[in-house]
Write a protein that binds this DNA or RNA. Structure first.
Lengths: 163, 163
DNA sequence: AGGGAGGGTTTGATTTTCCAACTCACGGGG
DNA sequence: CCCCGTGAGTTGGAAAATCAAACCCTCCCT
């Protein structure tokens, strides 16, 4: 204490819910864990196999996701103690993000090949091709149609963003 | 070869475009870089300040994103050489993912406070509240309405996924 | 000549990741 | 009883990534 020279570097990145969300689910494997539990795979060893993550890292991610309220950890057997992980409501609401990311990957990382490693069927009977739309008007969200308004004084955006 | 005991561990995680996409944009800060360039901040020092990333890490992320075709690096001044980064078409198509993630963060990480650090205005005049919908039927994508079909034999999904 | 700004690279210490091996608790043969 | 296998992790040590600060170079301004 009693340190008159406060030099510890301000370090104030832009306040932002994207950053906050990524602080929870942006670590390596976290979103893949969510993918698996959304697919219905609830057990540790299954997750290790399907994700390909080191067991210790997976254990640590699971703890974090449970703490964050994105997964639940439920006992399905005492003696020996065994647990299963499931998405909470908040976790399930991240699934659309995964679907959008998957669609992006299918489009841009596999341009030349028609086969996708996984297809999602929507209840309407068609293959799911997700689109992000504006709730108010229903139109697809396109970059040119957006304007950012930072609520924190001092933070700016610098104008048009054409490539 | 001629090694009868094949023990080197197969290590075959589930093939998946989510994983492939995350391999490109899932590293720490990568999506924040995209956020900034989508906001129109194109320069290195601006990015360092707004993101709060170490300069060397940021330099490495920028290289990766340029190589991946998500950003372009364009000279805006020879002598002294100076560059600016902009999203490509592929990069802009990731913006909806960011919007969805931001909305999730606003909803779940700030339940109690009404103020969001940033508001996006859609061209329709309303504040953007993004929804992920099925292109075929237009309905919002909800977990219960989805069925996964792995295209790769041997990969399974284990059934209903209620919390 | 001194002081920025801009766009990085270098250096060295601190964290994470990774992977294999180990544990503990059971269940099932033989 | 002894050994094997499964499930869910924990432990230990080496390898890789991150971090902060310092440095470099080229201009421009005064």
């Amino acid at each position: 204490m009693a340190d008159p020279k406060n030099k510890p570097a301000p370090k104030d990145p832009r306040p932002c819910s994207i950053a906050d969300a990524l602080a929870l689910v942006g670590e390596k494997y976290s979103l893949l864990v969510l993918r698996e539990v959304c697919l219905g795979n609830r057990r540790f060893d299954q997750l290790v196999r399907n994700i390909g993550a080191p067991r210790d890292v997976l254990a640590s991610r699971l703890r974090r996701l449970v703490d964050a309220g994105i997964l639940t950890r439920r006992t399905y057997s005492e003696h020996p103690q065994r647990f299963e992980y499931r998405p909470t409501e908040a976790g399930l609401e991240l699934e659309p993000v995964l679907m959008t990311l998957m669609a992006w990957g299918d489009r841009h990382l596999r341009k030349d090949t028609l086969d996708r490693p996984m297809v999602i069927e929507h209840i309407c009977g068609n293959e799911l091709v997700p689109a992000v739309t504006c709730t108010a008007c229903g139109d697809p969200v396109r970059h040119e149609d957006l304007t950012a308004h930072p609520q924190t004084p001092g933070w700016t955006v610098t104008g048009p963003t054409a490539a």
